[in-house]
Design a protein around this nucleic acid. Sequence first.
DNA 1: ACAAAAGTGTTGAGAGTACACCCATGC
DNA 2: GCATGGGTGTACTCTCAACACTTTTGT
Lengths: 213, 213
Amino acid sequence: MTKDYPRPSVTVDLVIFTIATNDLKVLLIRRDVEPFKGHWALPGGFVGIDESLEDAAARELQEEAGVKQVYLEQLFTFGEPNRDPRGRVISVAYFALVDSEQQQVVAGSDAAAAEWYSVFQPPPLAFDHRQILEYAVWRLRNKLEWTTVGYELLPQKFTLSELQRVYEIILQKPVDKRNFRKKILAQGQIKELSEIRTEGAHRPARLYSFKQH
Amino acid sequence: MTKDYPRPSVTVDLVIFTIATNDLKVLLIRRDVEPFKGHWALPGGFVGIDESLEDAAARELQEEAGVKQVYLEQLFTFGEPNRDPRGRVISVAYFALVDSEQQQVVAGSDAAAAEWYSVFQPPPLAFDHRQILEYAVWRLRNKLEWTTVGYELLPQKFTLSELQRVYEIILQKPVDKRNFRKKILAQGQIKELSEIRTEGAHRPARLYSFKQH
DNA sequence: ACAAAAGTGTTGAGAGTACACCCATGC
DNA sequence: GCATGGGTGTACTCTCAACACTTTTGT
């Protein structure tokens, strides 16, 4: 029954976020072929015929960013008929959160030119990737306010000031220190460690870690 | 570049909600062919090769439920390799809200057997449609708490008691009348009409209508 | 007059927000 | 001893939840 219909191609595209140099970054790949040659694009690729969407996204994440076991969530499916000039391509977009330690090891390890760009000043993007990126940022902001997803952008052990910086960078507004700590601790999702981070010429900070995951 | 990959089929499936007989209903189609012959399924169909996903969903909505211009939102994309035994089918699920007046005119107008079922006691469903339905109900509940989407299930003019019933039916719990009215009015999204509904042997109720749409 | 749904305010608890000073360390 | 980031508490506002009686109509 399904044989007679012309079929679209199906891809997954990834919005891979990380925090670096006090900014929210997204991983982009430089296109070296037409169309959009010289523009940047979200990493992505075709979905294997026997591969689930989530598996395809995880595979791309591994191939392009060299990470696995990170936070990954389906974002939206983009399917305008003319979004790709080469033909009908339906893209299932995912977004991923990579912690700031893993990220540094990996950027640029791929053969293709890959770079972390600020999501707030992105270069010209191919296809409808600008729209996908904007939607992903919107979703990330929402999730940050209603869930505890912020921990995914930090290494296992972190200080409360580091976590606060993550919130400030993503929401693009200052956060009150006392209220932030009160709210985060009240959620009961992080535990205080006995360790303390001594670095820099200041008072050492207590380390915390996320309870599950 | 896209030629060599075996391509999946892409469909849209619709979770079409309405309110009737004090219950939240979903439109289901009885399958008269294998697989899942005799089971019920969400209405849906293939996405045309030059048709956007949203257009495909709107078209199915028109064909299966006979309505247009109703609330329609993309839900999630389901793509497990074995969700359809006939082959690889990726389904972009949408959910739609049909007001209780339009619904009555249309149910059963299609040639295929179509029926409104309670979402809380659904019959055996084909494929992964049970999972899609459950996710849609979850999303509807969330939207109801954070947005003003409830109006979409009522005709243009409605009483506050009718709106409250919509909330109670969907959330499956009683709602305090005074708090409900206070909250709804505070949102500033509905306006009081001069009209009054006189029906039944009781005090007539004031009518309201939604401000935009 | 009575049955049935419409309509209406107040109080208390908890969450969120604003706000300023001392602490521990390296140099 | 000073510069730098770490760490702490209180008061106010606003939102949400609980709760009971009067009004208007048809019969």
